[in-house]
């Protein structure tokens, strides 16, 4: 039996009908057409499927799509426009924190959850925030540097407007 799911995805009201057992990742990719979140393990281990639900990080592969009814979902597609990358994305490019890119959407979402809550984070906090994100390519150092760099930039910007 299908149930209606009404969610705000990246700012857009979206309605689809889904079966109870389906994961949020599956519905985002197959029904809503957002293929930014990736399926790495489908088991909550790798973080490639990370999205934000009401601003909190969620492994969408292991979360029931219907449990997001009435809530706000942000995927990598909602973080920025291609012409104007988010500070985290720009810093990942500059620091060389992206190789094959498979883990990147998940890394950006976890980093965004951290920086939204705690823009003045230190290296330990960055490593803890990325604890659920696996990267097979980069060795993590450049990713951690990139997130710290993005944090600095966001703080500078906050300083100039505040």
């Amino acid at each position: 039996m299908k149930y209606p799911l009404n969610v705000r995805v990246n700012g857009v009201e979206t309605s689809v009908d889904v079966e109870p057992h389906r994961s949020l990742l599956n519905v985002l990719r197959e029904d809503i057409g957002l293929t930014g979140p990736k399926e790495g393990c489908d088991d909550s281990e790798c973080g490639a499927c990370m999205v934000l639900v009401d601003g909190r990080p969620v492994n969408s592969c292991s979360y029931l799509a219907l449990q997001t009814d009435g809530r706000e979902i942000t995927t990598i597609e909602g973080v920025s426009e291609p012409s104007c990358p988010h500070s985290i994305q720009q810093a990942l490019l500059e620091e060389g924190g992206v190789q094959c890119g498979f883990c990147t959407p998940g890394i950006v979402m976890s980093a965004k959850a951290l920086l939204d809550a705690n823009p003045s984070c230190d290296e330990d906090e960055v490593r803890l925030a990325l604890g659920g994100n696996l990267c097979r390519c980069t060795g993590y150092q450049k990713i951690v540097r990139a997130v710290l760099r993005a944090a600095e930039q966001l703080q500078d910007r906050a300083g100039t407007t505040g």
Binding site: S44, G47, R56, P57, V58, S110, A129, G131, G132, N133
Partner: peptide
């Protein structure tokens, strides 16, 4: 427990 996502949910 787990990761930030595990602890949030």
């Amino acid at each position: 427990v787990g990761s930030p996502a595990t602890r949030a949910n």
